[in-house]
Design a protein around this nucleic acid. Structure first.
Length: 479
RNA sequence: GGUGGCGUAGCCAAGUGGUAAGGCACGAGUCUGCAAAACUCCUAUUCGUCGGUUCGAUUCCGACCGCCACCUCCA
């Protein structure tokens, strides 16, 4: 079965085949950097990240471009409020954006273009549209003439009369048509500006994405992703600008991520009910937040609340326990060649294969991460079950389980091998803990429960958890 | 007014024209000095309501109720 993607343009699940065999070009609408990003923003960024990881897992060479909108009305307003310059504010928040997303385990895109670094390209594109009579200049601003693009509305399925009927459309008398939108905005006194053939000003919002996507990925890109609120007018306008300019389809698959909600309503900056990603990251491990964000399909709304995060934390602990145990079989060197394959091996081996195909089937069906996680946990259950019995499962089978499980989990980014995290301290810590465990074991042998419990309780205070198993006591960090 | 989406166990959440994945929580048990972890068992004859199509619908169609979003900046 091949990959299928739900395309907002056709409103259907479509077979995915990239323009160039084996290569995928992908553009994701990034943040306007006037503030830190909230978890809702993170959801979209994470979905993009996972789509990219999965495409890579499937063997595609992916080029991902994600923009940073670093000039815009809100940036100017916010900078004024804070008494700083728009460029300084954008720079600070841009850096914060990378900090936050990397803490969430989101890999950097191949290119992170900034609007202010593409002014000449935008001017050129606007000029092309003016030359094609698809744009007009009024008082130093340039507007796109929506009427000149017959397919306008094909993405959002909005008819002109619907838009005009909407009481919320602010009618600007200077526009020929209320639907027309600005590609170049004349600067007001005191605002940052760039020179252009039409006077001093700054680019409109939609033009930057058209421009930067085409510059870095070509005139037709494979996948264009963004939050569902961007469908109209942002993406509709991007299509209008790009396709009229080039005469070619702009994006082949449009992917829109549903909102993250909080208390049943949309988490949004204008609603002032958001939680910054960095604050959430201070409270929960990154894998927990990732697990939560992908526990529902990306086109379905998801509600943020502490209970759900708690659930993810518990579920992830179970997954990690399983992987940590499996890892021992993976690391230890065994003369495994001589081991026979038992019936139990065959059963577990087939469970591993089942899980692997469940995972790819789920992800192939429009990146159904919720279903994919279901498959992962089914295998976790079976592996755990085999630990409990003296099942005679061979080390290479466990090793195989570890490989497949950790690989799939890493596509989702819900399992990171933390060897390097402890590597620096392990040298000291390992012998120290072993000494403590030995002392504790002596106490236990003498039934000195006070001492043994004291060691366990005190270590727990330090987030080190001791477990007594048949093979002796173990320790590990608990988040 | 226009457009789109959603309603599945206590909670979260997949899914299918043929009889409901997975997670969390709860309860009972196994193991343990006690814990922890793990495991076992238990939790929806039923998928918002009412009709229709069908041999059969939670899944398709219609109506209704409820919730949400977009149509203005927002991921």
């Amino acid at each position: 079965m091949g990959l299928k993607i739900y395309n907002s343009l056709s409103r259907q699940l479509e077979d995915f085949s990239p323009l160039t065999e084996g290569h995928v070009s992908m553009y994701s609408c990034g943040p306007t950097v006037y503030d830190y990003i909230h978890i809702g923003n993170a959801r979209t960024a994470l979905v993009t990240d996972i789509i990219r990881r999965y495409l890579t897992y499937k063997g595609y060479v992916v080029k991902l471009v994600q923009n940073l909108t670093d000039i815009d009305d809100k940036i100017i307003d916010r900078a004024q409020t804070l008494g700083t310059s728009p460029s300084q504010l954008a720079r600070t928040n841009g850096e914060a954006y990378f900090e936050d997303t990397q803490r969430l385990g989101i890999q950097l895109a191949d290119v992170h273009p900034k609007a202010t670094e593409h002014i000449p390209e935008m001017i050129k594109l606007i000029q092309t549209l003016i030359d094609k009579d698809a744009a007009y200049v009024v008082d130093g601003s340039v507007y796109y003439r929506v009427n000149s693009f017959s397919e306008y509305g094909k993405l959002s399925r909005r008819k002109p009369e619907d838009l005009l009927a909407g009481a919320r459309v602010e009618v600007d008398e200077r526009k020929e048509d209320p639907r027309d939108f600005d590609m170049w905005k004349a600067a007001k006194p005191g605002e940052p500006y760039w020179d252009s053939p039409w006077g001093c000003g700054r680019p409109g919002w939609h033009i930057e994405c058209s421009c930067m996507a085409m510059k870095h990925l070509g005139e037709t890109i494979d996948i264009h992703a963004g939050g569902e609120d961007l469908l109209f007018p942002h993406h509709e306008n991007e299509i209008a600008q790009s396709e009229l300019a080039t005469g070619k389809p702009f994006a082949r698959y449009w992917v829109h991520v549903a909102f993250l909600k909080i208390n049943g309503t949309r988490m949004g900056k204008s609603e002032k009910n958001f939680i910054f990603l960095r604050d959430a990251l201070d409270k929960y491990p990154s894998e927990v937040i990732r697990h939560f964000l992908i526990s529902a399909h990306y086109r379905h709304p998801l509600d943020y609340n502490p209970e759900s995060l708690q659930t993810s934390e518990s579920a992830l602990r179970r997954l990690n326990n399983c992987l940590e145990t499996l890892k021992k079989y993976d690391i230890e060197e065994y003369n495994s060649a001589s081991q026979d394959i038992s019936q139990a091996d065959t059963a577990l081996l087939s469970a591993i294969e089942t899980m692997q195909s469940q995972f790819t089937d789920a992800m192939d069906t429009d990146f159904n991460t919720a279903q994919a996680i279901g498959g992962i946990f089914s295998l976790v259950g079976q592996v755990n079950k085999s630990f409990g019995t003296s099942s005679g499962i061979s080390h290479q089978t466990y090793s195989r389980a570890y490989k497949v499980l950790s690989e799939t989990c890493q596509v989702l980014g819900i399992y990171t091998m933390n060897e390097q995290d402890v590597a620096g301290t392990a040298e000291i810590l390992n012998p120290l803990l072993e000494l403590l465990l030995e002392i504790r074991q002596n106490a236990r042998n003498q039934k000195d429960w006070d001492t043994s419990d004291k060691i366990r309780d005190q270590l727990k205070q330090l987030n080190i958890e001791i477990q007594d198993t048949h093979e002796g006591s173990t320790w590990k960090f608990r988040s």
